[in-house]
Simulated scan of single mutants.
Amino acid sequence: MKPSKQPPQEVEERLGTLVELEAWLRTPMLVLSALWLVLVVAELAWGENLLLSTLGTVIWVIFLIEFALRLALAPDRLAFLRANWLSVIALIAPAFRLLRGIRVLRFARAARGLRLVRVVGTANRGMNALRGAMRRRGLGYVLALTGLVNLLGAAGMYAFERAPEVEGGFSGFADALWWTSMVLTTMGSAYWPVTAEGRVLCLMLSVYAFAVFGYITAAFASFFVGRDAEERTGGAKS
């Protein structure tokens, strides 16, 4: 990567302005990210309607403006785009919803592919929002993130593997939520996805479960061992 040709003072001013902007927008963007998550889950689980689509479009435009402002203030725009490539994809994907007249987008495979991108992008935005809201990224952060992944994963799996479109698929969102919970607890289930998008999402959920389940188990074990040690110490002193 080529070094920046901007004067050091200008780079510092840009960084300072960018930090101030992100601090000022942290709370409203956190609220919008939570609302966006609810809208995505609702649309995937129960289908689209005019109200949800309108609210989603308004929030998406706000996200575009916020990202454009951060990009304009970034001293190195190429590095900024590389660091936020998933956010870029997540912001581009909803634009295809405005182009439904294009014939290729009428195919079910293209629609499911865009849904998968939307699920992953929403999870990424939710993760960033949680990271900004919770300064100490300990057990509470991991549990909150796992709940977010569970909810989004269930909505995505229900959209991809819905019965009767898929033989043996989920008959309701509650079934998909239970199935995703079993995957995240590494217990598994008798049902395995049929569609390509469902299999990709299932793989992502399994990798996430493998990465965090050991941490959560160790954290709970440490908590109970610590309490047991405190009780023994207190009993010995008395």
Rank of each mutant, 00 (worst) to 15 (best):
K2A: 14
P7N: 06
P7T: 10
E10D: 13
V11L: 10
T17M: 13
E22P: 05
L30P: 05
W36Q: 08
W36M: 04
A42K: 12
L51M: 15
S53M: 15
T57I: 00
V61M: 06
L64T: 06
I65E: 03
E66Q: 12
R70W: 02
L71T: 09
A79W: 05
A79S: 11
R82I: 09
A83L: 09
W85Q: 04
A90H: 02
A90Q: 00
F96G: 01
R97E: 09
L99R: 02
F107A: 14
A110E: 09
R112T: 08
V117T: 13
R118L: 14
M134N: 11
R136D: 11
Y141Q: 02
L143S: 06
L148Q: 07
L151Y: 01
G153S: 03
G153H: 00
M157C: 04
A159G: 02
V166D: 02
E167V: 04
G168M: 01
F170H: 04
S171F: 05
A174P: 08
T180P: 08
S181A: 10
M187S: 14
Y191T: 01
V194Y: 07
C202K: 06
I216D: 02
T217N: 12
T217V: 14
A218V: 08
V225N: 12
T233E: 13
G234K: 15
